[in-house]
Design a protein around this nucleic acid. Structure first.
Length: 885
DNA sequence: TAATGGTAGGGGAGGAAAAGTTGACCCTAA
DNA sequence: TATTGTTAGGGTCAACTATTCCTCCCCTAC
């Protein structure tokens, strides 16, 4: 009955009985009843509480008191109560000494360093920076070094540090799935039994639980959870995965993206060597570790993760930790419960089974594809679904059945309405629905927040307000999805299907009205044409070629059409695309103008530049071409650029980081064979610990292989390719990655001429050594050829067979060829040392070896390749040693 | 190793290659 | 075991299917 934090009154009854409000967790139930929302202020009024005697305290809190639940005052987070407390935030990172080629395992591999940064919320710099190290470590300016000779003592020392600092929030990168579980497992392996008490409750052990999260929107993910009573946790990795769509989620890549800087990425196998070195090499490691502890804090500050989540918790009313651990629907449910209880409703405990059937969604108007060199106005309904629900009073509480209408002899369009989906809802005259009220409140609150934002000058308060308006917008938009979630706590398909049905009608009507009003028949110079539209927007070609005229017509049309709909439905003129390249449904690009003087930006939707499942080369090429075509209006330039890129690609001049493709490992069991899935499996066999897990993005390149081998047989880990010098299948990148996207953007502009882009002289390439992996080639002996004439070198035509440099025929040219090789080699060496220095700068020292192996850094690939080139070139040079001069 | 009828062309079998079709999958638009 | 916002739609790849093309071989006419 009281299992898992929910009360199931159902157990009181023998028969299946429907109950109300019984399927809700204690925490949330309490918060709703006490009108407490996540992260708000609570006042214990003088005289209403009792301080707990210091000897009887159950927690490590400074103040412990008891109070009746209805004596405490919960302050709504407005005005002075919207401030954020100066909470202490601990950001930390650990390093482990793994074995070569194996990901660290807590049973075997020690924790060697733990770096910590402690910051007060609202301050810009940490007030504590320290690092716990196993074995000695040379001094680090600005940071305290705490060295231990025994690992268990170090862990114990860290635990005491945590209890002393007593952080309210603990953050880090991947701490949930790695650092916390590893520390706890390691302590167990070392039998450090006093270690796992990291929370604020006395005597409550911190344990790691395995959790699984799966939703259609976020995908599936296995993760771990270590509850620390009284301390919030934000794993910045999890935050990033939820809130930002990125190609890669490594700390390095995320920092490059948001902080504009790279960090050293030291491979876990190198860490052990540094640990086993000197106090100086351990200092090196500690500096690295400290940086990794600081970066999550900086990311959090820069992206305002904490503030935005605080506001989200306040707006939706859920506990803070739900935001990272639970889905979207709990937030809507929390708001619904609160509003329902205020208005005297109780909510039935339903259990949606979910169904395989999809209901009909929005209309996408068949696009009139092509390149438009005239301004195209865009009209959109603002918050379409919320405004439909408000306009037509769609709610759980207003839905009625036919027989009720008959029984009460209700009058259509006065007492009730019939939706295009043939559901019935009473009008707001009869009863105002809960959902419309919630939506109105959310939208009004957002308007207030935006207004306050305009008048606020304090940057900190501005951040809070901005976070709030964002949270309110997201909340309003998720109400519709909640009603349509058949596997949810309160599905109601009549609401969602009626909403989409109204939406479909509205976009059709908008198209009709605009085309009818702006026509020659109606005295206009041109017939307006709706060339595309999706869900809540129409793209209109009004006809005129000058921007201000089209903008004028756009805003007029928006006002005109708005007048034809019920309040608060509003069609807005937002922008003009000029020029506009319409490729397909959900795929277009154009210059985005909101004022006639200057375009705001280049906007691309759905095409390769905004997708994460192709390689960077494709997205940069397409984006550069679009820029040349739309902004510079330089078709020739775009063609030349494309040809140059193709030529570079085929000659292996394109850097490998540009060719890495990433795809999410979205599920555990795949029916079809796919490149990223097969590679993940192969990597798991090489080293299970470091292989991609469920939900991770797998990075791969396509390598050369047998002629008819499928792509999934030729996918490989970029690092592995680099280390083993495996040739890349550039032809695949041309034919399977570049060609179609290029054709799609060039064809509407060039017509049939477009195909010449892919077949000109620039595609002719020098044949580069064929692959050596697999097949018969594995057994073939690679022959060396003469540097002068490429003749295979054998004992009978040269001085020293395949160890020589040239054949006897080319002997007269020895000097010239040698000189050429010397030049090449030294050029390559210069290039390599430039890259090397660049990496040294990045790691912050010009006197130390470069350790970085960041898969996300283009310099890393270039450096590795340059290194290989130097080695190869030197090897060739050495062949001259055998030559007779 | 020795002995042998040649050429042209139709037609079918068998297999390879090219061309559609379908479904799984990923990701994005709204 | 409890939990998981929606549908529409483009595009890629693998796997399958039906079609076309090519080659080989047999046979016959001459």
């Amino acid at each position: 009955m009281f299992d898992r934090g929910e009360v199931h009154y159902k157990d009181f009854f023998n028969d299946p009985t429907s109950t109300f409000e019984s399927n809700i967790a204690y925490t949330l139930r309490f918060m709703i009843d006490a009108k407490v929302v996540g992260m708000n202020w609570i006042e214990a009024p003088a005289g209403k509480y009792k301080l707990i005697d210091i000897k009887k305290k159950k927690s490590r809190c400074q103040i412990e008191l008891s109070i009746r639940w209805d004596d405490m005052i919960s302050h709504a987070p407005d005005g002075q109560w919207s401030r954020v407390a100066p909470l202490r935030i601990l950001s930390f990172d650990i390093e482990c000494a793994g074995r070569k080629g194996i990901f660290p395992e807590a049973q075997v591999d020690p924790v060697i360093q733990i770096a910590n940064m402690v910051t007060r919320q609202g301050e810009s710099k940490p007030f504590i920076r320290n690092v716990f190290t196993l074995n000695t470590c040379a001094n680090i300016v600005g940071s305290q070094v705490l060295s231990y000779t025994n690992e268990a003592d170090m862990l114990q020392g860290w635990r005491e540090f945590v209890q002393k600092v007593d952080p309210d929030v603990i953050i880090g990168y991947n701490i949930s799935n790695f650092d916390f579980p590893y520390l706890l497992d390691r302590a167990k392996a070392l039998k450090a039994s006093t270690f796992p008490y990291l929370g604020r409750l006395e005597g409550v052990k911190s344990v790691t639980k395995d959790t699984h999260f799966s939703s259609k929107a976020f995908g599936q993910r296995d993760s771990k959870e270590t509850a620390l009573d009284g301390r919030l946790q934000i794993d910045i990795l999890q935050y990033m995965q939820r809130e930002h769509k990125l190609r890669s989620y490594t700390l390095n890549s995320v920092c490059a993206q948001f902080l504009g800087e790279q960090k050293e990425d030291v491979h876990h196998s190198v860490i052990t060597d540094l640990q086993n070195g000197t106090a100086e090499s351990r200092r090196r490691l500690a500096v690295y570790c400290l940086k990794d502890a600081y970066l999550p804090q900086r990311l959090m500050d820069k992206l305002m993760c904490f503030i935005n989540y605080i506001e989200m918790a306040r707006v939706t009313g859920v506990p803070f930790n739900y935001l990272l651990s639970r889905g979207q629907s709990i937030k809507v449910l929390s708001q619904l419960f609160r509003k329902a209880n205020d208005d005297g409703y109780v909510i039935p405990a339903l259990k949606g089974e979910g169904s395989d059937e999809h209901y009909e969604g929005a209309t996408v108007i068949e696009p009139k594809k092509g390149y438009y060199d005239v301004p195209i106005a865009t009209l959109d309904f603002s918050s379409l679904y919320p405004s439909i629900m408000m306009a037509h009073n769609l709610c759980y509480t207003t839905l009625i059945e036919k027989h009720t209408i008959d029984r009460l002899s209700l009058v259509k369009d006065v007492d009730y309405i019939q939706t295009p989906n043939n559901d019935f809802f009473v009008t707001s005259k009869r009863r105002k629905g809960l959902l419309p009220t919630i939506l109105e409140d959310l939208i009004a609150a957002r308007k207030r927040a935006k207004n306050d934002l305009k008048n606020e000058t304090d940057p900190f308060k501005r951040a809070v307000l901005d976070g709030r308006q964002l949270a309110l917008k997201i909340s309003a938009n998720s109400v519709y999805g909640f009603t349509g979630a058949t596997i949810g706590k309160l599905p109601c398909l009549p609401i969602s299907t009626s909403t989409t049905a109204y939406g479909r009608q509205m976009i059709e009507k908008t198209k009709r009205e605009v085309e009818a009003e702006y026509s020659r028949a109606n005295g206009h110079e041109h017939d307006a044409e709706v060339i595309y539209g999706d869900t809540d927007s129409v793209m209109v070609k009004f006809g005129p070629t000058d921007l201000p005229a089209v903008m004028q017509m756009g805003s007029q049309a928006a006002e005109f059409v708005t007048g034809k709909f019920i309040k608060p439905i509003k069609l807005e003129f937002e922008k003009v695309y000029f020029p506009y390249l319409l490729i397909n449904k959900k795929r277009y690009a154009g210059l985005y103008w909101t004022r006639p003087e200057k375009y705001d930006k280049m906007d691309t939707k759905g095409i390769e530049t905004v997708r994460r499942d192709n390689c960077r080369l494709v997205s940069t090429v397409i984006s550069t071409c679009l820029h040349k075509l739309l902004v510079d209006r330089d078709v020739k330039g775009a063609e030349d650029y494309t040809k140059q890129v193709i030529a570079d690609l085929l000659q292996n001049k394109v850097d490998m980081s540009q060719l890495v493709i990433t795809k999410a490992l979205a599920k555990a069991d795949y029916a079809a064979k796919q490149a990223h899935v097969e590679l993940a499996e192969r990597m798991r066999k090489r080293d299970a610990g470091s292989a991609p897990a469920l939900g991770d993005r797998v990075a791969y390149v396509i390598i050369k292989g047998a002629k008819d081998a499928a792509a999934y047989e030729r996918s490989e880990d970029p690092i592995y390719v680099l280390e083993n010098n495996i040739p890349i299948d550039t032809k695949y990148y041309l034919e399977n990655q570049l060609s179609n996207p290029l054709m799609r953007i060039f064809e509407p502009i060039l017509g049939d001429k477009a195909s010449s882009l892919l077949s000109g002289d620039h595609t002719r390439t020098i044949q580069i050594a064929t692959p050596t992996i697999g097949g018969l080639m594995k057994f073939a002996v690679k022959t060396t050829t003469c540097l002068g004439c490429k003749t295979p070198l054998r004992a009978n035509n040269s001085v020293k067979g395949d160890k020589s440099a040239i054949c006897n025929n080319c002997r007269p040219r020895t000097g010239e060829l040698y000189q050429k090789q010397v030049t090449t080699t030294s050029e390559l060496q210069v290039r390599f040392s430039r890259l090397w220095t660049q990496c040294q700068r990045c790691q912050g020292s010009l006197h130390q070896d470069v350790l970085c192996t960041s898969k996300d850094c283009p310099i890393f690939y270039m450096r590795k390749k340059a290194q290989k080139d130097v080695e190869d070139s030197t090897a060739i040079l050495e062949r001259f040693d055998y030559e007779l001069w």
